[in-house]
């Protein structure tokens, strides 16, 4: 089969055609990031344009127009309306374009740590067995998923000296879960 790409823009960059077309096509995609985000938001909530319009109190053609808009044409009100219709709170943030990807990853890692600690606090405060169990199960899943999240892109890396021996192997999920469960049981026993 043919070549592989991680994004449509990466594919356009590699196209065997004139630079003018590539530039225009890339710009078109770049200028419609917010409207695409809104389409994704609607579809992941399983709503049609008509259903969302009903919840937002506008017409289906209005939703269609918003979803075809350039970023500069979408108002904050449009975004608030989408949020209301999907029962979501709007959060707006700015980021310097000079911020490095590694810093973004560190920022999000910090956020993950913050929210994980919040979960632990909730579990401790409530002293409810079902909540405790839910949080505990979430942590078990998170440990496996976060490892997989890092290992998958890492496995795609090629650099001098990298061999199979260098790949980090994690325990089978069941083994890992067992040792975590044992650790948790011991902690529970100790606290009692």
């Amino acid at each position: 089969m043919g070549k592989q790409y991680n994004s449509v823009r990466a594919m356009i960059k590699e196209m065997d055609t004139d630079a003018g077309f590539k530039e225009k096509a890339e710009l078109e995609i770049e200028n419609r990031q917010i409207s695409k985000f809104l389409v994704v938001l609607r579809c992941t909530h399983g709503l049609t344009q008509k259903q969302l319009a009903g919840k937002a109190g506008c017409t289906q053609s209005r939703v269609s127009k918003i979803e075809a808009s350039y970023d500069t044409e979408i108002s904050v009100k449009d975004m608030i309306d989408y949020g209301k219709a999907l029962n979501l709170k709007l959060e707006i943030g700015y980021r310097k374009p000079t911020v490095k990807i590694v810093d973004l990853i560190k920022y999000h890692a910090g956020k993950i740590s913050f929210y994980l600690n919040q979960l632990v606090e909730i579990a401790r405060d409530k002293d409810d067995e079902s909540i405790n169990e839910g949080v505990f199960n979430f942590f078990k899943e998170a440990i496996v998923n976060i490892n997989a999240l890092i290992l998958k892109p890492y496995s795609k890396l090629t650099f001098p000296g990298k061999s199979d021996k260098n790949i980090i192997h994690i325990s089978a999920p069941l083994d890992a879960m067992e040792s975590i469960s044992n650790g948790a049981d011991n902690t529970n026993k100790a606290s009692k």
Binding site: V8, D18, F21, A25, E28, V39, C43
Partner: peptide, 21 residues
């Protein structure tokens, strides 16, 4: 890209949305 550049751009833009989905 040579004969119908606007059509191809529109289709690729929609493809980008589909990939996001």
């Amino acid at each position: 890209s040579k004969k119908h550049p606007e059509e191809l751009t529109a289709v690729l833009d929609n493809l980008d949305t589909y990939l996001l989905l």
